[in-house]
Each structure stands twice: as structure tokens, then as C-alpha cells.
Write a protein that binds this DNA or RNA. Structure first.
Lengths: 95, 95
DNA sequence: CAAAGCGTAACCCGTTACGTTACACGTTGC
DNA sequence: GCAACGTGTAACGTAACGGGTTACGCTTTG
């Protein structure tokens, strides 16, 4: 089932990973091995979590990469479903 | 948990949707509202399932868009995890 | 005031999904 | 044999996106 209005994964990173550890964005970016801009744009909802970034997060925060990427999937799908009625698709399955 | 060597979602489309209905790739592409090349490259594992394509598939085959995009996520993650040990990431969480 | 942290704009790059057009190949029917 | 059809795919173009660097202006803190 589709989640209702899923939060952008960047918020989760900030609230559940960065802030509880008392980390700065600069420090966290260094640890993740990405630029400060990359992490900042994720945290502020400007870009999504790539598969590679999901793996980075899973290493740094000892979590599962799947959970991170699934959050992104839910978010992307929520956006795409908004335009469901605009798509020109013919129903094929009678099932 | 991570699935073991998940199949490319294109195989699923072909084997579980196109072939059972006796559809040609050309017909299916028309119904989905995309070009023949686009569907063909998905089926043959040359490109992935985009969020919008997941919604198209869900309409045409009366399924959930989530299931389609999740399959793609599992596949992408499986690829990304292959290079986990090459990523320069510092562990941050003691938990 | 100086230093640090931050968001972000401006630019670059590589990749990817998607489109159109066109080609070569195979199969099927007349 | 030939026409019609289905197919994969190469060759182009476009738009979007993740990521990097540099640089600017702002705020907070020592």
C-alpha cells in the first residue's frame, strides 16, 4: 500500500541521524565521502537519495541501504501518482 | 532484507504481463503510451523502470505502481551494493 | 572582529529516460 | 519470391538529475 504523503528522505537524515549525533552538515558530508553541497541538497529536499548514497548512509549510520532507498521510492512514487490521471494508458488486463 | 540477485524488472513485464496476454511489444507500447523503443529497452534490460513508467504499468495491468518501482529499487541496490567496499565512508553511529 | 557553519547560485561533467528515424533481421501469408 | 509485420538496436536529439568545485552572503559563536 502507498504511504500517505511520505516525507522527503532528507528530513529523516537530518532529524534521525545528523542532529541526534550532534554532527554538522560539513562533518557528516566528510564522513559520507561526498561534498557538503551534495548532502545539503539532499537534506533540504533539492535532490534525492541515489542507490550509491543509500549504501553510504547504511555504512555511516549502521542501517540498511534498502530502507533508505525505499523511502526515496515511496517519495518518488507519491510525486508520480499525482499525475496518474494525465497519463494516456489503455487498460490491458481484465484480471 | 536484501533479495538475492533480483531479476531485472523487464523480465517480469515480459513473462508475467506481455506474454500471458499474447501481446506484441508494439501493441503493449502503444497501450502504455510510450514508444516501442522505450518498452523494448526496458524488457531487454537496457533501461530501468521510472516512477512514471511504474504508474503506467499499474494502470495497464491493474497492479500496484509500488510493486514495480520496488522491483527496480531492489535491482538498483543490488548493483550498488557490489561496490560497497570501494566507498570511502566513516562509520558514525555506535548504535 | 574572526572563524566556522550553512544554503545556494553558477558553472562543469556523466548518466539516464525518452523521443524520432532508420536500418537489418526474422517470420508469416499470399 | 515478395510484401507485411514484429523486433532489436544504432544514431541522433532533448530534458532531468546526481555530483563536484568555487564563490558568495548570511548567521552564529568564540
Amino acid at each position: 500500500m502507498l504511504m500517505h504523503n511520505p516525507p522527503h528522505p532528507g528530513e529523516i537524515i537530518k532529524e534521525l541521524c545528523i542532529e541526534p549525533l550532534g554532527l554538522s552538515v560539513t562533518e557528516a558530508a566528510k564522513a559520507l565521502g561526498v561534498s557538503r553541497k551534495t548532502l545539503s541538497s539532499i537534506i533540504n529536499g533539492k535532490s534525492g537519495i541515489s542507490p550509491e548514497m543509500a549504501v553510504r548512509l547504511s555504512i555511516a549510520f549502521n542501517t540498511s541501504s534498502e530502507s533508505w532507498l525505499n523511502q526515496q521510492t515511496q517519495y518518488d512514487l507519491w510525486q508520480a501518482e499525482k499525475h496518474r490521471d494525465e497519463l494516456q494508458v489503455r487498460r490491458l488486463s481484465a484480471a
